[in-house]
């Protein structure tokens, strides 16, 4: 039981970090970023390249992932999303663009990094063993979980107390009012997109040390991120964190309890999500109709 909870918390911290980026982009620009999973994969590959191939310290690799993705995110916002949002009659066109970008990033990953599964050497060795094997957790998982929670805390504090964070929260709440108060919408949309992409990159970099990374991980990661956002409510930061931890916990419990019935954990999660959404369409903490 302790083992299940520990695994759930560890997974939840990673998931929450992915969902945070997605929900931030959604809150600021009303864009569903289909390419979020691909950004996560790029983050993983950058960390792999810097840490495993150039043999620089893991922290440097993590920063390299973060910066690469922030730049990619800013460029995508400035040159792709901004003109399309301005021109299109129906705002759904941004979804088409996001899907196109997802394909594009997949192609870039394939050409630059190849299609092989990549892993990196362990960042720390050893195993944490509590009370004679009732709770076993490798040290690197603990470290990664800790780093993820640290990133989440930093992100929340940044959104809460910095000027940029305040401006972005104002934008998410009411775009026109924020504009009237002198918030530069274009600038903060770009920063927000970059920040969201950066979070995806950081998780990719963290998780490459545990699970490795490969080309095919992008799509499923996006779907998981969508689920978390739906559980918690789209565009709400607390919702994304709650959604991440709930999904992590459900996956951890499901893999143990439902193991006897075959590989149906995700089926069960999907079906319970649909029933949940029938009663509460806006998710746990979302505003009705976002």
């Amino acid at each position: 039981m302790e083992q299940i909870i520990a695994n759930g918390l560890y997974l939840g911290a990673q998931y929450a970090l992915i969902a945070l980026g997605l929900t931030l982009i959604f809150a600021l620009m009303n864009v569903l970023n289909f390419a979020h999973g691909q950004m996560y994969v790029i983050g993983g590959f950058v960390t792999y390249t810097v840490y495993a191939q150039l043999e620089l310290p893991f922290v440097v690799a993590l920063f390299a992932s973060a910066i690469t993705l922030a730049v990619v995110g800013a460029l995508i916002e400035k040159f792709l999303f901004r003109p399309v949002i301005k021109k299109s009659v129906r705002e759904e066109s941004t979804m088409l663009l996001a899907a196109g970008i997802a394909f594009f990033l997949d192609a870039v990953i394939l050409l630059v990094f190849g299609e092989k599964q990549r892993g990196v050497p362990k960042i720390v060795n050893g195993l944490f063993n509590y009370d004679n094997y009732t709770l076993v957790m490798p040290y690197d998982k603990i470290l990664v979980g800790f780093l993820a929670i640290l990133s989440i805390t930093t992100f929340i504090l940044y959104m809460q107390y910095s000027k940029t964070g305040r401006a972005m929260r104002a934008l998410a709440q009411d775009k026109i009012a924020a504009q009237l108060m002198g918030v530069n919408v274009e600038r903060y949309s770009m920063i927000g997109f970059a920040l969201g992409a950066m979070l995806a990159g950081v998780v990719g970099g963290l998780l490459v040390s545990i699970t490795g990374v490969n080309l095919g991980m992008g799509g499923p990661t996006s779907i998981k991120a969508f689920m978390m956002v739906m559980i918690g409510g789209a565009g709400v930061i607390s919702g994304a964190i709650a959604g991440g931890f709930i999904l992590g916990m459900m996956e951890s419990v499901g893999l143990t309890v439902l193991a006897a019935y075959g590989d149906i954990t995700y089926l069960a999660i999907f079906i319970s999500l649909m029933i949940f959404l029938a009663f509460r369409p806006q998710g746990l903490m979302g505003k009705p109709w976002g």
């Binding site: 959604f26 009303n30 569903l32 979804m95 969508f226 789209a234 999907f270 806006q282 109709w289 976002g290």
Partner: peptide, 11 residues
């Protein structure tokens, strides 16, 4: 509605 419906149909 909107993105919510899009996400649930994807799921």
């Amino acid at each position: 509605r909107g993105v919510y419906f899009a996400m649930i149909t994807l799921v």
